[in-house]
Design a protein around this nucleic acid. Structure first.
Lengths: 223, 223, 223, 223
DNA sequence: AATGAATGAGAATTCATTCAT
DNA sequence: TATGAATGAATTCTCATTCAT
């Protein structure tokens, strides 16, 4: 076919790339195989992307664009904190099932083989969520919606850590196994339970008021 | 007479492998380079390890053996929950700084390129910690050391997620950048703060007693 | 209706080709790049030239047409020998500075990569000058304008060798460097000196009369 | 064969490379073909030479080492000028017939495709001969062995031009054709004639004494 | 048994040429 | 007719693995 690639075809190419890169990793994925699977010639792939790395980065960008939509949801909500967190967890579950490879692309860049892009990408990718979560927590703290004795940046970080691991636990081969080992073979059949327990964990971490339970006397260190 | 490799030599070889694999990833690391850096011939490497994958797995095993020592610490402690968690965080910080590559080996297997070993390794690696953490939480729950309204397996899982992300955040190029984006360029200069905030987060999540703060009225969902 | 390429367009295409071929060589020059630089589509280039080789040959022909004009000058002159030679050297200098790539195209075909065309081209290209120079020397010999003890064909050959090397020495990267190594970095700032020395060299070779200097006694071989 | 390459084999590899590069040029020569023809694997070729360019340069060096031997001959001689020139022409004829490809390697670097090495190589290659010839002529001038009204650097340059063209005329496909066009199909059957005519040409150019023949009155320009 | 040179399959990338529009 | 996107064979270079010494 000698017609310019349609948007549809461009999508197919990127999705094929995402599938291969997510499956095999940057280095082990084979450009010729990707082209064949996408139904195009290698030449056209190299017409659109300078080299393998550029193509990988384009696949990554597409993946991240999608993931960032989840955060956008979080930013725009008007509900109270926990309601927004709950919504976010549900979005995370939904999209992770829909496009696990987008998440796996993300995981791919954290590994050694993609090291060269680490600093550049971290800034691009994490900048927004870090800001959103931290601001959110700072405001909630000011409103006394959450406890006052915390470092908002750290708590935003822990919060994102939990969400990120949840993403991986839905999407990556390894982390799915691990999730099953922890929570049972059929853990993936009960998204509602996962949601409610994670929410409980986060809610507690955020709203705990030490004065209310100090009598329980288990603060045996640091206090 | 086969002069077996001394333990010393084996160590050198494995450590060299770990350094290369952690730096470059399974595929990008070069067996010939590893042999040269380790001061042995490729021949001898292939005498002891069937192929590259087998060698990678041996390097991984060595890394995991080390990481598992941290959990052993946790298991054997006699202190109360938070004290043990605190000890564990400090161990995590200490060993992550000492041997970041052990952690990076772990991260390596979670990525696409090591997919084939995912199920096998997950079982081996996570089995112990899953059991230890879950038992620990179950017992604590029975003793009313922690709240009663939780699923111990899930909470053990979230707990390990936080620890694992903390490992990565100390060791992997990408996650270190991300940590700095969230918590500031000099976050790595203040291990004590990291420890205390993470402990606070975990403590709250574990010991939160809903009845104590229900009057605060922010439970606007699920309650 | 086939809108034929205008002469103007043809010129642009050929000149672009000449520039690229002279710069990169037959194999390294890129047809797609040439078409783009010439402002046409590859399709139209392939309409007019069967393949890359045919196009190269067309570029070569254009270059040679130009170079042959210098010889025509030589043929038509009425002056005596040295005057004609001097005129030729000046033409050579002038045109080499104006169109170095024409000369580089010529040099290109003498190298290995254009081997296949060597016999065909040599006949086409050198036939005229060989004839002109040889006839010229033969006549001069008959007129006693030049020495009598020579082989006109050989001397015509040496004469052309000197001219050809002078062409290259003005036009080709390598030969320019070489010229500077022999005669100083600023050799190209003094065309008059080059002209007069070359003329002296040729004049001597042509007009030397052994009887006149035999007393000098340095003919220690062959005599 | 798993034994280190013998010197013999290394020679074979270089000679095979020289043959291919001289035949096809740097870009068109195929490394895999060279390896196959040399009876080795590509791998070993890349073990010894970093890349194609490095291998080409090694082939070139070998060729030049050989060619430089001819100049060495010239330098060491004790005979008078013409005797040494004659010896040199004979060496040139001899070696050109023996190893035409060495000369073709030289010609290869003067063409566009090897442009990138032009400045570096010119300095290396021409430096010695430029010095030797110029010194030689300067001394001869002082000794009144040759005429006094010349620029030694220029005359050394013209001298080398003649020799270089003679090399090419023996070795390169194109230049051989050209030589035959000028001097007849069987020119290569009469090396002695070529030698004596070239010697005559050079001798005259060098020893011409204008005063001796000025009465002939043909200096119709510049004088 | 240990060595490490040699192997050669495999992967990224280029570009002359075609041909649907 | 003109276009220029698409093709895919061909080429360079890498590196896991072998095996003669």
């Amino acid at each position: 076919m000698l017609k310019k690639l349609t948007e549809e075809q461009k999508s197919v190419i990127l999705e094929t790339g995402i599938a291969e890169f997510a499956e095999k990793g940057l280095n082990q994925a084979n450009i010729n195989v990707i082209a064949k699977k996408a139904g195009i010639s290698v030449g056209v792939l190299y017409k659109y992307y300078k080299d393998k790395d550029a193509f990988f980065l384009a696949c990554l960008r597409r993946s991240l664009d999608f993931l960032e939509a989840i955060i956008a949801d979080f930013m725009n909500g008007e509900e109270k904190m926990l309601a927004r967190v709950a919504k976010m967890i549900r979005a995370l579950q939904y999209y992770s099932r829909l496009h696990p490879n987008y998440v796996n692309m993300y995981n791919e860049i954290t590994s050694g083989s993609s090291k060269k892009y680490a600093p550049m990408l971290a800034r691009q990718i994490e900048g927004v969520s870090a800001k959103v979560y931290t601001e959110f927590i700072t405001k909630a703290k000011e409103n006394s919606d959450i406890r006052s004795d915390i470092n908002p940046m750290m708590f935003a970080f822990f919060f994102d850590n939990l969400l990120m691991m949840m993403h991986f636990s839905y999407c990556s081969e390894y982390y799915r196994e691990r999730f099953k080992i922890y929570c049972g073979e059929d853990v993936f059949d009960n998204d509602a339970l996962i949601e409610s327990e994670l929410l409980k964990f986060i809610e507690s971490a955020f709203t705990f008021d030490q004065s209310a339970i100090v009598h329980k006397g288990q603060m045996d260190i640091k206090s």
